[in-house]
Design a protein around this nucleic acid. Structure first.
Lengths: 234, 234
DNA sequence: AACTCACAAATTGTCGACAATCTTAATTTA
DNA sequence: TAAATTAAGATTGTCGACAATTTGTGAGTT
């Protein structure tokens, strides 16, 4: 449970105001599905639940909208985003382009220590993985850490913000609620390793290409879940 | 002036609430520089100026933050974004990746009528350009329309939102306040034409590459302004 | 003279209440 | 019976006031 807590706030948001807290709490609940996808959000109800005024809650809703977790309509209200197969494709097309760019930049801009840290992370990740076979949670955290480090290695502040603070929440939501299936886990290790090598060799072009493939594989994995779901409901 | 008004609201936002109006108004003033870049925003002052309460103004500020025109710090306040050379590079790296993707998708997904419309726009643009030589305003509007149509031609709703509603405001701000210099204008026509041809031939790979180059050239053009400014101030 | 500390002024964050809008369900009409 | 209308209820948008925090100023100390 403490691990889970540590996993909530990847991006370095320091919580100062009440709306910060509500934002982080709601974000976790939406990503994990505690607040159901596609459900309508009642401002009075949630304000009471979090013990804040509607103004504070609305501030949090605005920020949730910025990271694509809720959608607002004027005079109508707020809905949690719905995880559709169509949206998965759209979001992953964007993710692939942006994280490919990040990876290419990282090959130029990452410090040697940062690359070393990446390698260590991968080793440590491998060990944890062996011990806790099948535990998807640790895998999710480790994989996320890997991607975040590379993104930050791009040293492009705008890109970092776009990916880490905005887009990744929705990507996590897909991953957490749709899940990752078996053979993908071990395969991802090899792909991560190849990416690190490309970065270490300052081969930006290759690093970008490998990252894009890695993301495509991840997308296909989630897509499978949708296909399974569609087959079952028919 | 009416032309200018028409140019304010590219993305199809229907203004229903008071904060919608304040958002659109402030956005225009920031992009055009009426509200100075880098300046601090006083909530009480601006609320009075627009004739709304602080709550309404803050709603608008939240949305301006979502499109990168202002930056907030908790308990400190809001600042208009500063147009630096570093940020230009960062934003254009992102723009290049995203709009390159959009252009590639457009080559697959644009309807024939849409492509025809693009061609007509370019012709019309060329005529207007000849008549009003040097009038950078019309050029800006025409160029923008061109890019918007291609982006929308991608048919990727997430990408469209990201580019048209979020990123493009900041890009416009650079273009309007830094400007575009002479030889670039006519060159852009040829580049636009080549892009349309690639799209018409459903050659996504080429279309992406041409768009990325086109954007790089645009970036270099603005970069020149910064260099000139730096040389003068030294 | 420079630095620290404390106080005052101003700014942002939060709250509860009211106004405007949408939704829903009952009622009327064709 | 089905569609259109209207009225009641609920929800969102907006406001002004208060609380918490930051910033700027000035007195005091080294």
């Amino acid at each position: 449970m403490t691990e889970q807590k540590a996993n909530d706030n990847y991006n370095d948001i320091t919580i100062t105001t009440a709306s910060d807290q509500v934002f982080v709490d709601m974000r976790r609940e939406i990503v994990q599905g505690t607040i159901e996808q596609g459900s309508k959000i009642s401002e009075p109800e949630l304000a009471k639940r979090y013990g804040v005024s509607r103004a504070t809650l609305r501030e949090a809703l605005n920020r949730l909208e910025s990271c694509y977790l809720v959608e607002r309509k004027a005079n109508v209200g707020c809905r949690v985003v719905a995880l559709t197969a169509e949206r998965l494709i759209e979001v992953y097309q964007v993710r692939s382009a942006l994280e490919g760019l990040a990876c290419r930049l990282a090959a130029d801009n990452m410090e040697p220590e940062e690359v070393q840290g990446l390698k260590q992370l991968l080793n440590q990740h491998l060990q944890t993985q062996r011990v806790k076979e099948g535990e998807s949670y640790y895998q999710e955290a480790g994989d996320l850490d890997f991607h975040y480090r590379i993104i930050k290695g791009s040293k492009n502040a705008h890109l970092i913000h776009l990916l880490c603070n905005e887009l990744y929440q929705l990507i996590r939501m897909y991953r957490v609620q749709m899940g990752m299936v078996g053979p993908r886990v071990s395969k991802a290790f090899d792909e991560h390793l190849a990416i690190i090598n490309a970065i270490e060799n300052h081969d930006g072009e290759l690093a970008e290409m490998l990252m894009k493939r890695h993301i495509s594989a991840s997308q296909a994995n989630i897509q499978t879940k949708f296909d399974l779901l569609a087959a079952k409901n028919q």
